[in-house]
């Protein structure tokens, strides 16, 4: 087996171990607390399988759709704008104060207002998540571009590169590793916001499903929702890692070793 295969196998065992550990912890907690509010893992998994045959799958896809679409939108607006702000001082001088003042405001408090304007459908939820994640990506990207050394830009210009090519060949690839880190962090935020947004005035999505099970006092069903929410989070994390490995391969290498 080649080295990569071995590393991969080693990693898989680690993940398996982590899952077993968490399940054991859960099992132990369920046994020792002996409360109907905390079902055992077996009961929760059984409920998940049972409910997936009903409509849990639908709720899962609705939530996935909302969180993926909004993160993607935030990414597609935040990345170019962040790169431009990081490089073009004149634009940054104009926009930076605006970002600086609005970034720390908890955007989630605008939910009632957003519901008022965009209604109770998907639009308001997607807008809220996009709005929050956008700022995280924007600020990270801008700071990443500012770290790019002027020599790197000079190097491209000395080869004859124009302004557009500086963006294409220097600023974009240089900022991508940080952008992926912020995407990873944003995933957590996005799902938290998703849960919050879905627990209001809606009848679709995992957030609704969890709150609905809770109000019907069906803890095993509620945990089925939580398990799917966790799977959604882990799944998105893996997707981001996958793209990170493709687009930032140079970041994941073993460095030069003397005498290699």
């Amino acid at each position: 087996m080649n080295l990569q295969g071995k590393v991969f196998q080693g990693k898989s065992w680690g993940y398996l171990g982590a899952i077993v550990f968490l399940l054991a912890l859960w099992q132990y907690a369920a046994w020792s607390l002996q409360t109907p509010l905390l079902p055992t893992p077996q009961a929760a998994i059984a409920a998940t399988i049972r409910l997936l045959e009903a409509d849990l799958g639908k709720h899962f896809w609705v939530s996935t759709y909302r969180v993926v679409l909004s993160t993607l939108t935030a990414f597609l607006i935040g990345l170019p704008l962040g790169i431009i702000m990081g490089y073009e001082d004149r634009i940054d001088r104009f926009l930076a104060p605006l970002v600086y003042i609005t970034y720390p405001i908890p955007k989630i408090v605008f939910l009632p207002l957003i519901l008022l304007f965009l209604g109770l459908g998907d639009g308001s939820k997607i807008f809220l998540i996009t709005f929050i994640v956008f700022f995280q990506i924007l600020v990270t990207t801008r700071d990443a571009v500012r770290k790019v050394q002027s020599e790197t830009i000079s190097s491209l210009r000395s080869l004859g590169g124009n302004r557009f090519q500086v963006y294409r060949y220097v600023l974009l690839p240089a900022s991508l590793p940080d952008v992926f880190t912020s995407l990873r962090l944003s995933m957590g935020t996005a799902i938290a916001v998703l849960f919050f947004a879905e627990s209001f005035a809606t009848t679709e999505g995992l957030g609704y499903f969890i709150m609905d099970s809770w109000s019907r006092a069906a803890p095993d069903e509620m945990f089925a929702g939580i398990i799917m929410m966790a799977l959604l989070g882990v799944g998105l994390f893996i997707v981001v890692d996958f793209f990170d490995n493709i687009f930032c391969r140079w970041q994941h290498l073993n460095g030069y070793k003397e005498g290699k």
């Binding site: 020599e151 790197t152 000395s158 004859g160 140079w250």
Partner: peptide, 19 residues
């Protein structure tokens, strides 16, 4: 501005780590 037939090797070589 820069010229087609001038090549410039900057300090620290000016290589792009992502390429």
């Amino acid at each position: 501005g820069t010229r087609q037939k001038t090549a410039f090797i900057l300090q620290e070589y000016g290589l792009f780590p992502w390429l």
